[in-house]
Design a protein around this nucleic acid. Structure first.
Lengths: 245, 245
DNA sequence: GTAACTTCTCAGGACCCTCTGAAACGGGCG
DNA sequence: CGCCCGTTTCAGAGGGTCCTGAGAAGTTAC
């Protein structure tokens, strides 16, 4: 079992792990995605082009597919159609360049599917796949809902609403992703590099300084005037933990 | 059986020892790492380049791999991909120079994997491998969690929290690593050189005086006003033991 | 097209950590 | 008692980590 400590993985209705296929012609990127998704406790396979994707799909029967729009042999839309003949209820998360044919994607995804633009953060991809599967009813909820709770801090991942002690907290997108990562790993020290890896885009070479900055932003909003929940561990990183124990 | 005294080793679900492969082209360093990991009760093999690593991996089927990024015949990323084809759920700990291609590493490790920069302390490497295996759920927990307990002294390696008799103790990074080493070897005399090798970086040429100094710091915080747990063994080193027996 | 917002860089500064050197301590032994 | 050695403690320099404010560039919304 490949579960993350303290947080049960989503599973299929029969209890087996969810199956995800990653299709991208950049083997490094495929490896990164693969690692992140596997880390969620899911069963992951990869393919480098459209033909391989179909072959893998027939074998794996994935619940979701993470699909690059630009492939060496064909484009993502053709693959999508073929995938639907193999498994009609499959969910697809498209990967696309920011300036690409975004409108076509938008049209295609009007169904149950979704897309993210490169470069993206791993947290975002994982969250989207989770969202897809949840909406498709594919995943049995082992956790009690789409809510993340740490002490009196509550985050609704669907509505993007965050409250502390019932009080609403407004967050920018990056602040939200950072807090989500912290809330998914409560009571655990997260190093600045770890945070940078997961919350910023996968190829962001930036310095650890941004993390400090955004931690500072979060403190102003989350800990403002209250007992602090975000703590610095000098030389190690940051921890989020409930106030009392 | 090569278990450490007083502390059961992590094992695989079937009870056999965890298997770790060390890949580094510096045979001295490989030997040091090998020793430290074997000391944990794990089954360890080494390889000097990518080709040998794959061959060993096929034979050993390791649960974790400690992998130098710079190898004579190939780079660590290619090895990582090949490793995943051999054993998809393998965990990888990268070794890399501080100023090296850190951003690529950052991306690659974003999944369940991790990395440390040279020079590192052996304690750190061991702790990271343990962390990897624990998070991967690969290791059956023979101990009740990520907590180290000696008498009324408790250390949570994830949150970096240390308490004695329920009272929180604040430690600097070096103090924390030193205490971790002591707590992993309770009731055993540790020489200053042993401590220096394990807690400070493996090529730190410093004098034993720092150890004395940091022991003194720890005493002030851990033993402050209480029955002492840290004892000096003149001419031999230091011991940590519970108060009563 | 403008205004509001978000993201990130830069620089100053406070504070903490680490290690050095030197002096004080204290047991063992002549 | 006085010396030697290993150990402990103190004080402080230097270096590093971390926090914050101000502001530039880019993005989004209207």
């Amino acid at each position: 079992m490949n579960t993350r400590s303290g947080r049960p993985a989503l599973t299929r209705p029969d209890g087996t792990p969810l199956r995800v296929l990653v299709v991208d012609d950049d083997p490094d990127l495929a490896e990164v995605l693969c690692g992140a998704l596997r880390y969620e406790g899911w069963q992951v396979r990869t393919a480098g082009d459209g033909a391989a994707a179909l072959a893998e799909a027939r074998e794996l029967m994935p619940d979701a597919v993470v699909l690059d729009v630009m492939l060496p042999d064909t484009d993502g839309f053709a693959v999508l159609r073929s995938l639907h003949t193999v498994k009609p209820d499959v969910c697809v998360l498209f990967l696309t360049a920011r300036d690409a044919v975004e409108d076509r994607i938008a049209g295609i995804t009007a169904g149950g599917d979704d897309y993210v633009t490169k470069p993206f953060s791993l947290e975002e991809v994982v969250a989207r796949v989770r969202g897809l599967l949840r909406r498709a009813g594919m995943a049995r909820q082992l956790e009690e809902g789409p809510q993340l709770v740490v002490g009196d801090l509550v985050m609704d991942e669907d509505s993007h609403e965050v409250t502390r002690g019932g009080e609403l907290i407004e967050l920018s997108p990056t602040e939200f992703e950072l807090l989500r990562f912290l809330m998914r790993n409560p009571r655990r020290v997260l190093s600045k590099t770890q945070i940078l890896d997961r919350v910023w885009s996968y190829d962001f070479g930036g310095r650890a300084h941004v993390v400090e900055l955004y931690i500072s932003y979060l403190r102003k909003k989350v800990d403002a005037g209250r007992e602090p929940m975000i703590h610095t561990v000098r030389g190690a990183g940051y921890v989020l933990k409930p106030v009392s124990p």
